[in-house]
Design a protein around this nucleic acid. Structure first.
Lengths: 195, 195
DNA sequence: TTCTAATATGAATAATGATTCATTTTTTAA
DNA sequence: TTAAAAAATGAATCATTATTCATATTAGAA
């Protein structure tokens, strides 16, 4: 699919991002996406098999961007504890600069587990594993306590950031600025796990 | 509504819990809920205004239970740091013993923000505030650092627990047992915020 | 330029499932 | 015991929308 006419494929993805973010997957009409993209309803079915397929593709595209960006930013730091700080900051910045992505992650990440039992969200696991690897590295360098389980810690840290962004997405006026929130969260996470 | 015949009201709520948990709100048919409850489709509309109303009522009922249970359990501890440990343990236990509730919280808590912009989820905020109050108390007693912001910390802590339960709900075989997970999470949270 | 294949269109289809309501059953109280 | 009210039933309605497809447009090759 994605080769024929990449421009139009992108246009549909972008339109769908907006519409899904505003209405949620189930309340978004395919015709709205078409309208937002400035094309006919039927055209969508040349690029995507069905509505679900739009969501999955969109999610993977977005996650890939996020992933690439995060990897790049993290690679600039060498100290694992600094990497964790950076992760928090970059994640929350991303959410702030791109609420659509945040909403999609928030709602659709949960949806997908329900309406597509078989769709395994590889990209998301990769994202989680970025954190897992940092923690592993920290343990190896003796910076992080031996008893910390990366499988739990990575989820806890992601969950903390994710809940914070859920809050932002919902409230009109963010109560805390990115730097404060990110400093607090990575702050007590790091204090909590360091040797 | 909820006075006429509380038994049947409960029966519908219970049926809906099962069906929503299995299929998710949008894929759950009202007729399935009726069937599960052993009543006619139309009967549901005697007790609830519409499908959304079932979800909202159900959510509030469940949250009330969770809230009462948690308050009770926490009150048994006097040390704020112990209360935090207890919170994690009770939360995760609840999830394990009652996956239906977990799934509803996971998916519908997010949904609701989308499909009912006006529905403000008071019960959920109350739950979050339990954590907030504990942290406040800990600060007052000089057990928790002065610079910790309860508004951020409570969300981070809840988020950590919630992401952990998401993982459980999704995976067939839980990889970590409740005690380990809860000890880890409350462990590094407490280490992270204590003075 | 002209023909063909690839794309795009959007009106029509067709399935779905929430909600209603005329009818039946059950409960209440006189 | 009986009549009125309340509760329950489930078949019929009715709106909603994803998807299809016959037709039209565009692009590319010859």
């Amino acid at each position: 699919m994605r080769h024929k006419n990449y421009e139009k494929y992108r246009k549909i993805i972008d339109a769908a991002t907006k519409v899904f973010a505003k209405k949620g997957f189930y309340n978004a009409k395919v015709s709205e996406i078409a309208q937002e993209a400035g094309i006919a309803d039927g055209t969508i079915y040349i690029y995507f098999k069905h509505k679900d397929d739009i969501l999955i593709s969109l999610f993977e595209e977005k996650m890939q961007e996020v992933l690439d960006n995060m990897k790049q930013q993290i690679s600039l730091e060498s100290d694992p504890l600094k990497k964790i700080e950076k992760f928090a900051l970059v994640h929350l910045k991303l959410i702030q600069d791109n609420k659509d992505i945040a909403e999609i992650i928030q709602v659709e990440l949960r949806q997908s587990s329900k309406f597509m039992k078989n769709y395994h969200n590889i990209k998301f696991f990769e994202y989680l594993d970025l954190i897992g690897h940092i923690i592993q590295e920290g343990k190896e360098k003796g910076l992080i306590r031996e008893d910390i389980l990366p499988g739990i810690a990575k989820r806890a840290f992601f969950g903390a950031l994710d809940e914070m962004s859920r809050f932002w997405v919902l409230s009109k006026k963010p109560k805390y600025d990115i730097e404060t929130a990110s400093r607090q969260i990575s702050g007590f996470f790091i204090n909590g796990i360091k040797r």
